[in-house]
Design a protein around this nucleic acid. Structure first.
Lengths: 169, 169
DNA sequence: CACAGATTGACAGCATACTTACAATATGGA
DNA sequence: TCCATATTGTAAGTATGCTGTCAATCTGTG
């Protein structure tokens, strides 16, 4: 009896989207860290490295828009990547407020080497589902994230960032 | 041309489940905080309160299993809930290592009052999808989180926790 | 040109989320 | 009973993720 009531009450948490999103994020990070353990790379650090490789000479503010990542936090992330010598920060001559970001040779090498582990991690996250359901979930999630973009504190602004970058590149 | 290449490369991040889970979690938290702003309650604090109400006299370790929440972090969460006087910690006589958790009168009142805001938040997260797609996404996510339970650093152990609790209640 | 307003990176502070380590306490087997 | 082992809460350390604030710098308008 007790259990029946208890279970019912906890459903106020278990069956809600917010709870499931949090759990899934925890699981995803856990799997990512595990697969990439020999490189000591976090999901966020990986995303930052890919974005810097894709947009060499990008500044921190635009980088934050490109990966929908908070600007304050990003400072620390870049610091860590710099400490590991995967990234270089060079002062800009055009705008002395900004520092431009570049992948080092060692950062590019790491990115190349870590790719298989990242792919394994991404595959493992969806593994338990049937292939058709994986596609379905990804389609729905992509749609939902896109439609909810503005609800996020740091909306994705990939195109804007590219536009501005165009000038100095 | 540059843009085409750039966009292609960033797809190594944008189209991956890990990235989408992170973004969706950010969006979900953002919406939750916004809807519950007048109560200054976070998603995790809410889950903890519901679990304590459901299992009065639970200890911190079992609470962490019931909401799949890291034990170390939970200490700080409880501290904050205690500071706001929503929760009481009483030493156990049976096991002097543990402290038993109870909702205060004010905590129970808050939980009752905040419920509509929480419901609004949960609804908003899925709002952009068609009703049928909302159900589909929830079904797939529930399944995936359940099947990936062991991959999480803090797997959900709802029943175990209940069992142990049964003795002292 | 001057100056109001915006932008940039840095910092401080709060809240998850995790790891390892530790002291106090409990438990089960010799 | 004694003692190896496990459990509990706590703390320190790292890493996101967010809010503010601030000084330096840039930009657009008058």
């Amino acid at each position: 009896m007790r259990n029946r009531i208890s279970t019912l009450n906890m459903d106020a948490v278990y069956t809600k989207p917010g709870y499931l999103f949090r759990r899934m994020q925890q699981i995803a990070v856990s799997i990512f860290i595990e697969e990439c353990s020999e490189y000591e790379l976090t999901p966020v650090q990986f995303a930052a490295l890919v974005a810097i490789q894709t947009h060499p000479g990008i500044d921190a503010t635009r980088l934050s828009a490109v990966i929908a990542f908070d600007r304050s936090t990003l400072g620390n992330v870049i610091e860590r990547l710099e400490a590991k010598q995967y990234v270089e920060r060079k002062p800009s001559f055009e705008d002395r407020r900004t520092k431009l970001l570049y992948l080092t040779r060692s950062g590019a090498a790491l990115l190349r080497d870590v790719m298989p582990a990242v792919d394994r991690a991404q595959a493992r996250m969806l593994q338990p589902l049937k292939p058709a359901d994986r596609k379905l979930l990804m389609a729905l999630l992509t749609q939902l994230v896109d439609l909810n973009n503005e609800a996020s504190r740091v909306p994705l602004r990939a195109e804007d960032a590219l536009e501005h970058l165009g000038k100095s590149n």
